[in-house]
Nucleic acid binder design. Sequence first.
RNA 1: GCGCGCGUAGCUCAGUUGGUUAGAGCGUCCGCUUGACGUGCGGAAGGUCACAGGUUCGAAUCCUGUCGUGCGCACCA
Length: 728
Amino acid sequence: MIKNLPKTFDFNKIKNKIYRLWEKSGYFNPDNLQNHKKPFTIIMPPPNANDPLHIGHAVFVTLQDLMTRYHRMKGEKALWLPGTDHAGFETQVVFEKKIAQEGKNRFSFTREEFYQLVWDYTQKNRKIVKQQLKQLGASCDWSREKFTLDKDIIKVVYQTFELLWKDGLLYRGKRIVNYCPKHQTAFSDLEVKYQVEEGKLYFVRYNFKNDPTRYIIVATTRPETIPGDVAIAVNPKDERYKDYLNQIVIEPITLREIPIISDERVEINFGTGALKITPAHDATDFEIGRDHNLEIRQIINFDGHLNELSGPLQGLTIKEARLKVIEILKNNGSLIKEENYTHEVGHCYKCGTVIEPMVMDQWFVAVNKKFGKENKSLKELAVEAVKLKKIKIIPNNFEKVFYHWMDNLKDWNISRQIYWGIRIPVWYCQDQANEICRSHQGIIISPFKKPTKCPYCGSKNIIQDSDVLDTWFSSGQWPFATLLANKKDDIKIYYPTSVMETGWDILFFWVARMIMLGLYRMKKVPFKVVYLHGLVRDKDRQKMSKSKGNVIDPLAVSDIYGTDALRMALLIGNSPGRDIIISEEKIKGYRNFSNKIWNASRFVLMNLNDFNGKKPKLTKKDQKYLKDIKKIAKKVSKYLDNYHFSLAGETLYHYFWHTFADKIIEEMKARIYQNKNKKAAQYVLYNLLKDSLKMLHPFMPFVTETIWQIMPHFDKKDQKILMIEKWP
RNA sequence: GCGCGCGUAGCUCAGUUGGUUAGAGCGUCCGCUUGACGUGCGGAAGGUCACAGGUUCGAAUCCUGUCGUGCGCACCA
């Protein structure tokens, strides 16, 4: 009946046809799975809409599609909800790099023009990403697809903003923040990468005002900030400086008078035990300054240059200023000595520029503030959810990592001084013309309507906050925002979602924030399980990056070896929380496997003449084979249910190749050729193949579906599409 | 300073409630194969599971320590 099947499986020939078959069937949308009851939900971590997919995306597609297809076949209402992320800062950087080739940057355009250009750029990329997800076999429900800048998503984000404000969990304030002078925006603590650097510790002498023979020596790594000093602090318990307190000394660059104060935060054993206080440019100093009511003397501008308050350093960059200040200190005899000093310096995670602590008005989420009936903070709620096992993190050692990070969590800066993103929905009254307005500090929160005048004092002199929200503030709401923004009952049916599958590298950036915001808005955890996969590295354990030239393009690989091979290569040997090493050889190996599936099937199909599907009399061994595969099914199901995807894949690989193909087919071959008990042989082969295809389908959907479409079906219960067959 | 990992075949890695002969991909060696598949088949070599001690009838797996190695967080005057 079936002859002349090609000798090799050609992925490119069937990929569009097969994906279209699935898509047209409508079964990506769980609404169409009528007999399926129990919901199973995965919200896709939205890829950034600023670049095509890389190999890391292929990992999540493989794992999430595997789970979705498995649960769909088990008769569950499987929803895999796709989307893309505007990825605020990331995208702006990518885009600015692009236009830099034309000698332009964001300041070459108006804010509105720039936004439109990036919008168009991301929309183009979204189309590419969608096409790529399809080629990787993603069985997600495109009818529910969302973008983080969709109007209905922004609406949810703004609602959250407003609620947080009303609950007192959101505040605006002058705080010291991590500022990148190159990108000219502030960051949260997470975007700062610390690197060990060889530096110098400079010992600088500050003379007493009323007695130049007396002085105090301060150790600093940042002498260029001396013009920003507003005090010298010593520890109150430090015997050496007992009678120095409240003395006035002369700051040696701009010759201002500053006092010596005491504060317990000064460490007696570091340097000389005396600390210069520069509230505008150091986090600890900021706190000490605040508690002592000291002036915030900003001497570095937001463009990274020193300003007029720095006297002779004015106009210089930070680096230049350091050299200059050392020269001045040497000349006036204030530099007592230099010591080599190794310390960690914060850098912008994107461009490597040294992060400058700056004082700015920013919006913060108060993660440590207790609120509501339960009187718990966002942080406490999140920690509790994990402790009470309402959320399980796989692998579980990351639960400890999670607690450790949460312990150290400080308020979250969500203001970004960029154009691309969701604008902070706040206006400020410039006049603050009455007491009420002043009591509100002129802050007008108005997410859904642009105000025309100040609601407190009536002034029309109002301006909008120029900043946008941290991208993670919106993606942190993704699990419920996508469901709220879709069909009416989605949130009821699909929330809490089943699994959040993502990389361990964004456990803090994203997962922790989703837990906090999900619990805040929905009073329920956003997901029951967090499955963390590793980072993809090359053969030499190097992180893949374009600049290193070691990237593997998943789509190119898919074109050459097929998506099925790529998926298996990314799955086998991939255990949660561990990095994945991938090489072309490995992918080739699984290409051979997909071809093995093709050829074993080909053999079975070509030897089904006269076979009618009816069960003939079977030998004992035949019966054993049919029983054995049920055992395999049990084993594979157990592995999948316990998130041991690699072991599940390996089990099937082994069974199909080394048991089914190498042993059983070889044995039956003789019976078929010699016409000995042939019907039974055909029956066994046909049914083992069918079960194998079903189990392999979530792993290798294209080759299995292709064969399913070709093979004859005798059982009326057989589905037209393998994707919705019942799991064995 | 606090915390989390890793060390298994030549290479890269699996090995999840401790249980026969420790697995995979690639590589090496020998043989086979003219009809499912050279993208194949059969077979072989190759592992004191970092080291030392302990628990156990039994340890790659659990505990303690040592060495090597990677990472996160905090501080960072």
